[in-house]
C-alpha cells in the first residue's frame, strides 16, 4: 500500500516536472513567440503598422488634397519651406500629402497582386501535387514555362497591351507572380501527401477537395506565408518600375512610382522630388522583407543561426 502510494507520488512529481519544463504550446504559439523574440522582425512589423496607419488615415495627417490642390506660387518648395513638411512638387502640390495617399495605392497594389497570385498559384499547386500523373505534368510544365520568362519583361509587354492603370498593373503583376506560389505549394503537398494522417483521412472516406483544403493546405501554410510577405514587397518594387516607365498607374494619381517618374525632370533643381518617394518605397519594402525573414526563422527553427 505504501509502496503504491510512493509510486503515485513519484508519478505526480514527474508529471509536474514535465509540465514546468515544457509549457504546452501549439505550433502557431511557437511561431509567434519566435517571431517576437526577433528584434529586427518586430522592428519591421512596427514600421509596417506605422506606414499602414499613416496611409489609411491619410486625411487625418494632412489637410491638403493630393491631386487637385495645385498652387503655382509654391512650385518646387524645399522640405519645410512655406509650411510644407516635405516641400511641394512641380505643380505646387504638397509632397507629404501625395506620399500618404500614394502609399495607399502602393499597398493596395502589393497586397492585391499577392492575394490574386497566391489564390491562383496555391490552387494550381494543390491540384498538381495532390492528383499527380498527367495533370501534374501538364500543370507543372506550364508553370515552369511561365517561370522561364524574365518576369518584368513580360509585365512590361502586358502593360504595353493593356495600357496604364492601377488595375492593369495588378493584373499584369499577378499574371507573372503566381508560378512561384504553385512551385512552392506543390513541393509542400508532395511531402505532406506521404504522411499517415492523409492516408487515414482518405481511408475514412473524406472527399478529395476536403482533404486538400482542410488537411493538406493548413500544413503547408508556413512557407506560403513567407512567400506572400516577400511578394508584397516585390510587387511594390515592380509596380514602381512600371510606373517609372510610364506603364504603371495613371499619371495624375498619387503613386510613389509616378512621383519618382515626375521627379526625374528636376534632379538638379529639386532632388527631393526623387529622393522622398524612393525612401518611402525602400522603407516599406525593407519592413516587409524584415517581417518575411523573421517569419522564415520563426517557422523553421533550423534556419536560425
Amino acid at each position: 500500500m505504501s509502496d503504491n502510494n510512493k509510486v503515485n507520488e513519484k508519478d505526480r512529481v514527474m508529471d509536474e516536472i514535465g509540465l514546468e519544463a515544457l509549457p504546452v504550446t501549439n505550433y502557431w504559439q511557437d511561431v509567434v513567440r519566435l517571431f517576437t523574440k526577433n528584434r529586427i522582425a518586430v522592428l519591421g512589423l512596427i514600421m509596417m503598422v506605422i506606414i499602414v496607419v499613416l496611409c489609411v488615415g491619410a486625411p487625418l495627417f494632412t489637410s491638403h488634397d493630393p491631386i487637385t490642390e495645385m498652387n503655382f506660387t509654391e512650385l518646387l518648395f524645399r522640405p519645410g519651406q512655406g509650411g510644407h513638411i516635405l516641400g511641394t512638387d512641380d505643380l505646387g502640390r504638397d509632397i507629404w500629402t501625395r506620399l500618404l495617399y500614394g502609399g495607399r495605392n502602393s499597398l493596395v497594389t502589393g497586397i492585391a497582386v499577392t492575394l490574386i497570385a497566391a489564390a491562383v498559384g496555391i490552387a494550381i499547386g494543390l491540384v498538381a501535387g495532390y492528383f499527380g500523373g498527367p495533370v501534374e505534368s501538364l500543370l507543372m510544365r506550364f508553370t515552369d514555362i511561365m517561370l522561364s520568362f524574365p518576369f518584368l519583361i513580360i509585365a512590361i509587354a502586358i502593360m504595353a497591351v493593356l495600357g496604364p492603370s492601377q488595375k492593369n498593373v495588378i493584373l499584369a503583376l499577378a499574371i507573372v507572380s503566381w508560378p512561384r506560389f504553385t512551385r512552392l505549394t506543390r513541393g509542400q503537398v508532395l511531402q505532406i501527401k506521404q504522411l499517415e494522417y492523409i492516408e487515414s483521412a482518405s481511408v475514412a472516406g473524406f472527399k478529395k477537395a476536403r482533404i486538400m483544403f482542410n488537411h493538406i493546405l493548413p500544413n503547408c501554410l508556413g512557407p506560403l506565408i513567407i512567400q506572400a510577405t516577400l511578394s508584397v514587397g516585390g510587387a511594390i518594387l515592380s509596380a514602381a518600375s512600371l510606373s517609372y516607365l510610364g506603364l504603371g498607374a495613371d499619371a495624375a494619381a498619387p503613386d510613389w512610382g509616378v512621383m519618382l517618374s515626375q521627379g526625374r525632370n528636376y534632379l538638379q533643381l529639386a532632388p527631393h522630388l526623387t529622393t522622398i518617394p524612393g525612401v518611402a518605397i525602400s522603407l516599406t519594402v525593407l519592413a516587409m522583407n524584415w517581417i518575411g525573414d523573421g517569419l522564415r526563422d520563426a517557422f523553421d527553427p533550423k534556419m536560425r543561426k
Partner: peptide, 11 residues
C-alpha cells in the same frame, strides 16, 4: 534587395 534599383541609379 529592398531599394528600387532605378531609384538607386537616380540617387
Amino acid at each position: 534587395v529592398s531599394l528600387p534599383k532605378f531609384w538607386f541609379g537616380l540617387v
